[in-house]
């Protein structure tokens, strides 16, 4: 006895459309994956600040009150102090780096806001020290006060990382009541991107 089996495969119309659309969905998935990978490889833009050297006022003797100013170019002006051999007076040096986060060759102009801040006064042993009158060699920012915003413009930026190095001078007023002291005053430099234009 032979029985014939017969059946019919019925595919719903909606499912059939889905099967035909599979290559498109797959392609979209690949594209999405590529986007994700690209997003993962391309880091967000960032700005970094590097300290290249401290602001040194050197070694000096002071009888009561005196001051020493070190310009951004390294020129030294003394009032009522006697300079001694020891550490050499020199301006601080900082570098601002802008990293666009990708390897694009698009020419950019980046405007960065920079703020230099330091405690206005410190007491070390019998010595009171006051740091003020910052000077920089950045165009348009020859003199700047603590906490005052400066603008650094990185023009014609074609590399992934563009940078600007600048010097910072200042004036140290010292009042010696007794003893000597090694005075150290922290200087913080903060930077943030305020504009980025494609040229």
């Amino acid at each position: 006895m032979v029985r014939s089996l017969s059946f019919q495969l019925k595919i719903p119309v909606k499912s059939a459309i889905l099967y035909r659309a599979l290559p498109i969905v797959f392609a979209a998935g690949l594209a999405a994956a590529a986007l994700v990978a690209d997003a993962a490889m391309a880091k967000p833009q960032e700005v970094r600040v590097r300290t290249q050297g401290k602001l040194s006022f050197g070694t000096f003797m002071v009888f009561g009150k005196g001051s020493r100013a070190v310009s951004a170019a390294g020129a030294v002006a003394d009032t009522a102090i006697v300079a001694l051999d020891g550490s050499v007076p020199r301006p601080a040096r900082f570098t601002i780096e802008y990293d666009r986060g990708n390897e694009s060759k698009q020419t950019l102009e980046v405007i960065i806001e920079v703020v230099i801040s330091a405690p206005s006064a410190m007491r070390v042993g019998g010595v009171d020290a006051r740091l003020s009158a910052f000077e920089t060699d950045l165009p348009g920012n020859a003199r700047v006060a603590s906490g005052e915003a400066m603008t650094v413009r990185l023009t014609d930026c074609r590399a992934r990382v563009c940078s600007r190095t600048f010097n910072v001078g200042g004036r140290l007023d010292v009042t010696r009541r007794f003893s000597g002291a090694k005075v150290e005053i922290p200087i913080n430099v903060d930077a943030r991107i305020v504009a980025r234009d494609r040229l």
């Binding site: 050197g58 000096f60 010292v174």
Partner: peptide, 9 residues
């Protein structure tokens, strides 16, 4: 970044 100013009095 943090820098510093220093002097030997």
């Amino acid at each position: 970044a943090a820098g510093r100013a220093e002097a030997e009095v």
